[in-house]
């Protein structure tokens, strides 16, 4: 599964990278972010694109797995 590593990047880079992954037709992929508000932003963005997602935490970072 593709991993989009947006950890520590400023707004709007995590959203741009998520957008790129959706446009590339990456299927299911996981976005990694550092800050809680970035996780919420990625979740909202995925929802606005009609995607479902599962959120979690891994090694102190946040993960948002965007479903295909």
């Amino acid at each position: 599964m593709k991993e989009v590593d947006a950890r520590g990047l400023s707004c709007p880079e995590p959203l741009m990278m998520t957008d790129e992954a959706i446009k590339e037709g990456a299927g299911e992929f996981t976005v990694l972010v550092t800050e809680p508000f970035q996780r919420t932003n990625v979740e909202k963005f995925a929802r606005s694109k009609g995607k479902t997602f599962t959120s979690g935490e891994k090694d102190g970072y946040y993960t948002v797995t965007v479903h295909a």
Binding site: R7, G8, L9, S10, P12, E13, M16, T34
Partner: peptide, 11 residues
């Protein structure tokens, strides 16, 4: 930003 601008990662 579209051309790849970034100030890099924070840790």
């Amino acid at each position: 930003l579209k051309r790849g601008f970034s100030l890099g990662r924070a840790y």
